[in-house]
Write a protein that binds this DNA or RNA. Structure first.
Length: 875
RNA sequence: GCCGGGAUGGCGGAACUGGUAGACGCGCCAGACUCAAAAUCUGGUAAUCGUAAGGUUGUGAGAGUUCGAUUCUCUCUCCCGGCACCA
């Protein structure tokens, strides 16, 4: 065999073998246990980045391990091909988004293939192809007819200069990213998925997912945000209002609010509504100052983070409502912290018992009325901060002395008797707005007819094909300027009508691709019967950043498809692994104006002291110092991105895969290190060399496990302990880093084992075969070659996972640690069968232990079998 | 602001169920090989006191529970992810 490890030839040969033998083509076979392993498919942004390499390597290791367990494995790949970056690239380079996207897919497919992933490429899909999105349109029409999709107004970011809707990402410090104009909020009609109809089920079914990370389930629970509270109606009558409004008749008769703290109802001193609330609009009609305030509230972005962190401001509307119990006149304020999208867009304010209301009331001199006191004390007067704990009611008339629960129940009865409220379950989750005023997305299959209204496109007219030769210019949706697209006949009456030009949120495509992969060529529906074999996905892998939105939408879509009779089961992903981000060190200089210049690692020299600590960094170009900055996510703007392609070209895919899996466990963030990559490469060379050295002594004889020297037995013990440990690490814990560490330890032991006797070589052969098998899911190319070198004719990809030999794992004696008062004082070796008194005697006989133990002062001894002895003495 | 997560040697990390803190790798130091260098191999490497045996301190900060805490509880600091139109 070649003395030296040559990654490129190993990788070419192994990849050619898999391709020629169609090794990874998945075929439905009910007689075999299936395993569907799915990594989140990439957006075709241009080039693979390290996050992709990490994601797909994790998925590949799991897939290959499951294959070695005898499962019928499916690992597919495709493209989340619609999206905003394609339109941005189109504007920048004057290339149609379709062309840009398809070029990127071709390049990235080649890159993925060079990583040697065990993917069934015959199932590849791209979501921008009509044969994919036509079924999404089909589902849309079904849901529309069922009322699970409806139209209402929604608030968007409007760029008044470019006359276009902006994504949140395109609003920077309240301004449009291209125009720099101050962004405004604007209300436009949009289609919504009624996800709130599934809120209860989406919440409850989280309890059926034991193999999802707890933190992801916690985030989803909090996002859905089920709370039990009270809907309270504050009567609003024209007679309460300033004269210009009286008699206009447009006023609602009650102002509805939702509260989780009805026990504080008697402490309400004002009511606050969102700037977009109809009552605010009405009050502003004759109030220029209020009108101006509402206009200010409408400036700026629409994200919750922005609204929650902005300074709380408000203005009195001059209008009043009545307290439902006392009839007291309460002022109505407009406040910028009240969100129109939540509940009723109005809140009752209890400054004494809500932090935000307290701050607001203090700022505007509104009254503060305490009505809750601690069970065993008094509420301080005056209040210096809101008292938000539960307690007992006071200042609350007939409710005085009640607990929260008592107050809740009796107030519910009192409100219901006056028809001014009732208990209510409220969700934080809002319906999912899916209309996008963009070109590069799946067209919404609706036709607007002057006579028939909004009519879904009929099945025989699907798909509504998106023209692919359009170059957007940043001024709104080009489809709205193309009569050949938007001119259509009404499917009901046949009269000329207008086709909807909005496209769907790209989250829609990524919400059901997992199902399409299970029957990618189905021509009769979203999926066909093959999907029943593969679904649910056994293992789903992707970035933690998708913990809420994508995963919630996919779970929702699965339930929608289930209710259409398309898929079985209630959940799409049985097991979930959320991978951490890939980070790298930044090198920069800060200008006096606060801007930073970032440098590439090759532009900078690092100096270290003789302990390896970095003491200085200088720019090679000018010899002046550079700041070694924080560890941040890889990005082009910070010059700290590492191109996986360079890595694969220089060291091969196996080294890239090995480093990725060794540097950190998958759920943690991973810090890039060039030196660490060298280490991974070095390990593969060491493995190769050890196999070559072993084979230079000729073929190994059969192992005679009962006739081994102590040294040979010891090595065999380590081999089988390594098999046992790595099986658990890879199969159950997904801590690939510790599995690799264990094989490194074993290789180190093999370098120390110089026994070239017959049985020495037999033990070595077993050890090397074990290491090669264990590493084969992680570094499939080099192990493919080494497996042949070790004398096997069949390919390692078809070999079963190794099993530990129980006989090899038997130990005669064990080492225990001896502590005195919890501090380590000695180590003892005892027979594996030693009794507790025997262990105690040996522990007390240890020379160093004796120095710390006065036998008369022993209070007790704790013996943890197989671990330690702790002697507790009086101090 | 709200929700979720994290913090361990010079660095990445290990310690899985409360039981030996620092496995493994990187870096660094020393040695071998070499005319020399690279590569490779061997040994050392938390801090501190000690010739050594061994002692003391030490897992972001502070408290608590326990025979024993990186692990459990509480308070705090900083960092990361998400917040509904980035994907």
């Amino acid at each position: 065999m070649d003395e030296h490890y040559q990654p490129s030839s190993c990788e070419t040969q192994a990849q050619r073998y898999w391709e020629e033998n169609r090794t990874f083509n998945a075929v439905e076979d009910p007689s075999r246990e299936k395993y569907y392993c799915l990594s989140m498919f990439p957006y075709p942004s241009g080039r693979l980045h390290m996050g992709h390499v990490r994601n797909y390597t994790i998925g590949d290791v799991i897939s290959r391990y499951q294959r070695m367990q005898g499962k019928n494995v499916l690992q597919p790949m495709g493209w989340d091909a619609f999206g905003l970056p394609a339109e941005n690239a189109a504007m920048k380079n004057s290339v149609a988004p379709a062309q840009w996207t398809y070029d990127n897919i071709d390049y990235m497919r080649k890159q993925l293939k060079s990583l040697g992933l065990a993917i069934d490429w015959e199932r590849e899909i791209a979501t921008c192809k009509p044969d994919y999105y036509r079924w999404e349109q089909w589902l849309f029409t079904r849901l529309f007819k069922k009322g699970l999709i409806y139209k209402k107004n929604g608030i968007v970011n409007w760029d008044p200069a470019d006359q276009t809707v902006l994504a949140n990402e395109q609003v920077i410090d309240g301004r449009g990213w291209r125009s720099g104009a101050l962004v405004e909020k604007r209300e436009i009609p949009m289609y919504y998925f009624r996800i709130t109809s599934y809120a209860e089920e989406l919440l409850a079914d989280l309890d059926t997912l034991p193999d999802w990370p707890e933190q992801v389930k916690a985030m989803q629970r909090n996002w859905i945000g089920k709370s039990r509270g009270m809907e309270v109606h504050f009567p609003y009558s024209p007679s309460l209002q300033p004269s210009p409004v009286a008699g206009e008749g447009a006023a609602k008769e009650v102002l509805k609010v939702f509260t989780t703290r009805p026990d504080t109802l008697m402490g309400v001193t004002y009511v606050a509504v969102a700037a977009e609330h109809p009552l605010a609009t009405q009050a502003a009609a004759h109030n220029p100052a209020l009108q101006a305030f509402i206009e200010v509230c409408k400036k700026g972005g629409v994200t919750e983070a922005e609204l929650a962190t902005q300074e709380k401001t408000g203005m009195a509307t001059g209008h009043y409502v009545q307290h439902p119990f006392t009839g007291e006149r309460l002022p109505v304020w407009v406040a910028n912290y009240v969100l129109m999208g939540y509940g009723e867009g109005a809140v009752m304010a209890v400054p004494a018992h809500d932090e935000r209301d307290f701050a607001f009331a203090t700022q505007y001199g509104l009254p503060i009325k305490a009505v809750i006191r601690p069970v065993d004390g008094e509420t301080p007067v005056p209040l210096t901060a809101a008292y938000t704990d539960y307690g007992l009611l006071f200042n609350s008339n007939e409710f005085d002395g009640f607990t929260f629960e008592q107050a809740f129940d009796s107030m519910a009865i009192a409100l219901q008797s006056k028809a001014l409220g009732q208990p209510k379950i409220q969700f934080r989750l809002r319906d999912w707005g899916i209309s996008r005023q963009r070109y590069w997305g799946c067209p919404i299959p609706i036709i607007h007819c002057a006579d028939c209204g909004d009519v879904p496109v009929s099945d025989d007219q699907l798909p509504v094909v998106l023209p692919e030769d359009v170059v957007p210019d940043g001024s709104g949706n080009p489809l709205a300027k193309m009569p050949q697209f938007y001119e259509a006949a009404c499917p009901v009456c046949g009269k000329p009508a207008r086709r909807e030009t909005d496209t769907m949120d790209t989250f829609a495509e990524s919400s059901w691709y997992y199902a399409r992969f299970a029957s990618p060529h189905a021509t009769t529906g979203m999926v066909d019967e093959k999907a029943r074999y593969w679904l649910p996905v056994d293992q789903y892998i992707g970035g933690i950043e998708h913990a809420i939105l994508h995963l919630l939408y996919a779970r929702f879509f699965h339930k929608l498809m289930r209710d259409e009779g398309l898929v079985a089961g209630n959940e799409p992903f049985a097991k979930l692994l959320t991978q951490g981000m890939v980070l790298a060190e930044t090198l920069y200089r800060t200008h006096s104006n606060g801007k930073k210049d970032y440098y590439f690692p090759h532009e900078v020299t690092l100096e270290r002291d003789n302990k390896g600590r970095t003491i200085s960094a200088t720019l090679i170009a000018d010899g002046q110092p550079v700041t070694v900055g924080g560890i941040e996510t890889m990005s082009k703007s910070k010059n700290n991105g590492v191109d996986p392609q360079e890595l694969v070209d220089k060291y091969g895919a196996d080294t890239a895969r090995l480093f990725m899996m060794f540097a950190a466990p998958p759920e943690q963030s991973l810090e890039w290190s060039d030196a660490g990559v060298e280490g991974a490469f070095r390990f593969l060379k060491r493995l190769w060399k050890r196999v070559a050295e072993h084979l230079s002594h000729g073929p190994a004889p059969a192992l005679d496990a009962d006739n081994l020297t102590a040294e040979q037995r010891a090595l065999r013990l380590q081999v089988h302990e390594t098999i046992r440990k790595t099986s658990d690490d890879i199969g159950r814990r997904y801590t690939f880093n510790t599995a690799i560490a264990a094989t490194m330890e074993l290789i180190n032991a093999l370098y120390r084992f110089e026994d070239t006797s017959e049985q020495g070589r037999a033990v070595m052969q077993e050890a090397l075969e074990s290491i090669v098998l264990i590493l084969s899911p992680i570094v499939p190319h080099v192990t493919h070659a080494l497996w042949h070198e070790l004398g096997h004719t069949d390919a390692i990809v078809n070999a079963p996972w190794p099993q530990p030999d129980p006989a090899a794992l038997v130990k005669d004696s064990i080492e225990l640690v001896v502590q005195v008062n919890g501090k380590l004082r000695g180590r003892i070796c005892v027979p594996a069968t030693a009794s507790r008194p025997e262990i105690e005697a040996v522990a007390l006989a240890d020379e160093n232990v004796k120095r710390f133990v006065d036998s008369s002062a022993i209070k007790k001894m704790i013996v943890v079998p197989g671990k330690l002895v702790n002697i507790v003495v009086a101090e």
